[in-house]
Nucleic acid binder design. Structure first.
Ligand SMILES: [Zn+2]
Ligand SMILES: [Zn+2]
Ligand SMILES: [Zn+2]
Ligand SMILES: [Zn+2]
Lengths: 142, 142
DNA sequence: TATAAGCTTAGAGTTAGCTCTAAGGTCAAC
DNA sequence: GTTGACCTTAGAGCTAACTCTAAGCTTATA
């Protein structure tokens, strides 16, 4: 049985974050001392580590909620449900990648066009490009 | 002279956003009617379009503040200041790209490992991987 | 003249995921 | 028996960039 700071040390989550996750139903302490101290058993610890791992991959807390409800009763859930969540996340990531690559491209072109020197910016081609608006839009949803 | 909704139509910003940008010093209406209505002249309009363009590229409002203060007095600012802002943004974008590519990679590997079928998730390799924690961490700063 | 559309303001709410504070109780060590 | 580290709670604050609301003027149209 670990106390909260020990679970924090073990998982790399802060105690604040652990309590925050508890409030959101992601993890919990199956025991409490008389004084109200949280105590985590092996099952709790594995669940906390699962959350941390999923979080590291980039799943949102909502995604993780769904994964956890599959996890507690795997026989009632299908592989397809798991891949759906994962595929949806991948789609999000890919969409964001497209945006960022477009930003990267635009910024690189801007940087190439400007001398970057110490003279004043009256002739600056980056400023000119921003002024002219002839740059492609890279944002749809941040 | 445009009224706020006309400027909104012209720039693609909402009237709310225009007022929000004004509150943050990005744009302003050089005239007001007796009733207090905002009126935007050509200079205002060009500034608003500059902001929109910079925003489309992905610059933050803080970045844009800096770009605008260069813009209003280009002789007092150098190309280097402009490239510094741009390069800094590009560095940010590249850092985020690395994270997202790592996420993409991890998610693809997970998806390949799972059958995605309708059977129950007791054998699911995605769940197993999350359980084992043997996935690389993709997040540093979101 | 009445109705609707549009404008004003200050300020609150949204999102996600923490992060921190205050005020106080508990526990082990010296 | 008293430090000091650790625990508890409710709730506020943070970031970024909006987004919306309420309450009340103004302006254009029919
Ligand atoms: Zn130059
Ligand atoms: Zn330049
Ligand atoms: Zn399967
Ligand atoms: Zn599976």
């Amino acid at each position: 049985m670990l106390k909260i700071s020990e679970l924090a040390a073990k998982t790399g989550l802060s105690t604040h974050t652990i309590r925050f996750y508890e409030k959101h139903g992601l993890i919990n302490a199956s025991e409490r001392s008389e004084a109200g101290y949280r105590y985590y058993d092996d099952v709790d610890i594995r669940r906390a580590q699962f959350v941390k791992t999923a979080r590291n991959i980039g799943f949102s807390l909502d995604d993780i909620s769904q994964l956890l409800s599959i996890r507690v009763d795997k026989t009632s859930h299908s592989c397809q449900e798991v891949t759906d969540i994962t595929q949806y996340k991948l789609d999000e990531v890919n969409a964001r990648l497209v945006e960022l690559q477009s930003m990267q491209n635009t910024l690189e072109i801007l940087l190439e066009s400007c001398c970057g020197g110490p003279e004043n910016a009256t002739h600056c081609s980056i400023m000119d490009a921003l002024e002219a608006g002839d740059v492609k839009s890279t944002r749809s949803a941040a």
